[in-house]
Structure formats: structure tokens, C-alpha cells
């Protein structure tokens, strides 16, 4: 079942068109990777899924993006509710300059959870699901900025999980991390797909090959090819895709 589906999606920043007629299905409880050279529109595309592009003035969209069957590009979409259901992890870990606990409780409090006990439970379960609880359970009141880079990124994942999203968008989540921390995040992504749908943007083709079920290759704002990860890597239909995944350009 497709949780997200884009139909002829095009996007402009001012007069500059950055996405061209994208048609892409995102399957529920799967990991979808979007690969492609820098500036090809990967990040722009996933930022359509939680309407983060709204923050940039002059963004125009045509076509539709169906989320659970509803077109989220419509102006009357409840963006706040959408963002609650579609969480996001950014390229560089961006914990708030607050304590570890306050980072996690930020979202739930925002959406109306007040009970201390419930909040404590959310803190623990979110951190556990992000595989961070054991490492920080004695430091819940320490500043989130005192954690290591990899821990900070997992904290951001825990923060995203705290409001029980359905989809998690990851925008090059490991590009600022060392190989060990990267491995941990990848492992985590694989676990998360049990309960969530993961869409990740990555530079790193090996990573896409390792973790994703589906892969889309983007080039100059177009979705060049989309399919099962194995097909994309082993028998790509497009010559461009073939050259990219074999490392001859990019």
C-alpha cells in the first residue's frame, strides 16, 4: 500500500523550477532511498512530503502529493497535523540547546501532553526506540549539546519518534557522522521500518544499497528511474542510472 504518492509533481523556487513531473510511490513500512548528485532536487522532494518548503518564500507547486489518499499540496491542509505525522531528521544533528529530556518532551508538550508520568514514559520509550536510552539514561538532565555527534543524531531521531509519526524523512542523516555512528543509524533505520515508513535522501550509494527496499535516482530535478533497490543497482533501465550507480559520474 502506498502511504505517499506523487503525481506529476513540479516545484518552483521563484522562477527557477527545481522539480519536474515527479511520479513516485512510497510503500508503507519500507525504506525508500532517493539518490542522485548534489543539487538534483532530492532534499527538495522530501521537503514536499512535510511541507517544509513552505518556509521558503516564493515556493510554487503543481501536481498532487497524496498522503493516505489526501492531497497535501492543497492550501487548506493542516500543515501542523501533517508534520506531526511525518517526522524529519536533518543532515546535521540539530538538538535544541536544552536538556536531553526537554528535547524529547518538546514535541509531546507542544501537542498537548501535560502529565509528568506520561512524559517520562515517552522519554524512555522514544530513547529506547532510537537505541540511545542505555547510553544517556543517567544524563537525561544534561545538555543535549554535550552528547557526541552520533548520539545527537539518534537523539534527533528519538525526538522525531516522540510524537508517534507514521513516516520519517531523513535528509542525508549520516553525512556528518563517522563510519561507526553511521552503521548505528543504518541499523536503526532497518529496525524502524517495522513500525514506520522511512524515506531517506543520501549521497552514499552503498548506504542506499544496504538499507533500502526501493530506490529512486534523481537527476536535474527529474526522477530518472524508480524501482526495487536491487533492480536499480543490478539492472537499471536508464543508461544515466547505470552510469551513476557504477560510479562513472556524480
Amino acid at each position: 500500500m502506498n502511504i505517499i504518492e506523487t503525481n506529476d509533481l513540479s516545484l518552483w523556487y521563484g522562477n527557477k523550477q527545481t522539480l519536474f513531473d515527479i511520479n513516485m510511490p512510497i510503500k508503507k513500512n519500507s525504506i525508500t532511498s532517493i539518490i542522485g548528485p548534489s543539487g538534483c532536487g532530492k532534499s527538495t522532494l522530501i521537503r514536499v512530503f512535510n511541507r517544509m518548503n513552505d518556509l521558503i518564500d516564493g515556493t510554487k507547486i503543481s501536481g498532487t502529493v497524496l498522503y493516505d489518499g489526501n492531497n497535501i499540496c492543497r492550501p487548506d491542509t493542516d500543515v501542523l497535523a501533517l508534520r506531526k505525522r511525518v517526522g524529519m531528521i536533518f543532515q546535521k544533528a540539530n538538538p535544541f540547546p536544552m536538556t536531553v529530556r526537554d528535547n524529547i518532551t518538546y514535541g509531546p508538550k507542544l501537542h498537548g501532553v501535560k502529565d509528568q508520568k506520561e512524559l517520562d514514559e515517552i522519554v524512555e520509550s522514544s530513547l529506547r526506540r532510537a537505541a540511545l536510552f542505555e547510553e544517556v539514561k543517567d544524563r537525561l538532565n544534561a545538555s543535549a549539546l554535550s552528547l557526541s555527534g552520533g548520539q545527537q543524531q539518534r537523539l534527533c531521531i528519538a525526538r522525531a519518534l516522540s510524537i508517534e509519526p507514521e513516516v520519517i524523512l531523513m535528509d542525508e542523516p549520516t553525512s556528518a557522522l563517522d563510519p561507526i555512528a553511521t552503521a548505528k543509524i543504518e541499523e536503526l533505520a532497518l529496525e524502524l521500518k517495522e513500525n514506520y515508513t522511512v524515506v531517506t535522501v543520501t549521497h552514499n550509494m552503498q548506504q542506499a544499497g544496504r538499507i533500502s527496499d526501493y530506490t529512486g535516482f534523481m537527476y536535474l530535478g527529474r526522477l530518472e528511474e524508480f524501482g526495487k533497490t536491487r533492480d536499480i543497482f543490478e539492472s537499471p533501465k536508464s543508461e544515466l542510472t547505470e552510469r551513476y550507480v557504477s560510479g562513472r559520474f556524480g
Partner: peptide, 23 residues
Amino acid sequence: SYREASMALGATKWETTRKVVLR
């Protein structure tokens, strides 16, 4: 990035300013 993180969690601009930026 603080702003982005907060908005991605479903906060409005004002909530973000009040709870994250001002802090």
C-alpha cells in the same frame, strides 16, 4: 536548524519562537 527542527515537529512559527528561539 533549531527553527527547522521545531517546525518539523509540527510547531507554529510563534511556538518555535517562544519555546526555542527565545530560550
